[in-house]
């Protein structure tokens, strides 16, 4: 299991008995690539280690937030048993919904523990989502989402996000350049343009 200082998109633990436990989906540590912010619900699809027990015991999700908001965060688990789109089932049956606080400012490790209930078996493929309330202006928050390869279990190279029409869409992650990098590129562009103009003037 990763230390708390490491960040990874998700860890799902299941068990066959009340006293056992096994990680069935766990991604690469991922503290460098950043967080994904959206006012819509979004999350990762995970295909669990098929040989593993399937009673849900815990979820561990890292997120970043600049603010604190009671009951502002909702974590859900869906079975991917919805409509078939392009050979993939969209998130369908809602299995679990837990509402808690957004606990910023800072990096937070959210751990949701489930008591052992034999009926709470997860299907092979699930989607775990987060919804952040209160995003806007200086208030920013988001999951340290990643579609990097899993160490245990697997997930696709896309993630799910609801759109304004409340439909599920699939997305890939991109990196937004930081302001310093944008400024550097702009300066570089200006220099190149100036050199080009100077060269053009000499030719004339």
């Amino acid at each position: 299991m990763a230390a708390e200082s490491e960040y990874f998109p998700i860890q799902i633990q299941t068990s066959a008995t009340a006293t056992s436990g096994r990680v069935v989906a766990y991604s690469q540590p991922n503290n460098a690539s950043g967080y994904y912010e959206s006012t819509f619900e979004y999350g990762l699809q995970a295909t669990l280690d098929p040989a593993a027990p399937s009673v849900i015991r815990s979820l561990v999700i890292p997120y970043y937030s600049t603010y604190e908001l009671p009951d502002g965060l909702t974590a859900r688990i869906y079975a991917n048993d919805g409509a078939l789109v392009g050979g993939t089932r969209v998130p369908g049956t809602l299995l679990s919904e837990v509402q808690t606080d957004i606990n910023g400012p800072g990096d937070t490790m959210l751990t949701i523990g489930y008591s052992f209930v034999l009926a709470n078996t997860l299907p092979e493929t699930i989607t775990v989502t987060l919804s952040f309330q209160g995003i806007g202006g200086e208030r920013t928050a988001g999951w340290y989402l990643s579609t990097a390869d899993n160490l245990v279990g697997s997930h696709p190279e896309y993630f799910w996000e609801r759109n304004a029409a409340n439909e599920w869409t699939t997305k890939t992650l991109t990196v937004i350049p930081e302001p310093e990098m944008v400024a550097l590129l702009a300066v570089g562009g200006l220099v190149m343009t100036a050199l080009g103009l100077r060269k053009g003037a000499r030719v004339l």
Binding site: L110, T172, V175
Partner: peptide, 16 residues
């Protein structure tokens, strides 16, 4: 539900 929060400088934001 347990949440462990530590102070952090603003990490990069990802798009989609």
């Amino acid at each position: 539900v347990q949440q462990t929060t530590v102070p952090a400088t603003a990490p990069p934001k990802r798009g989609s």
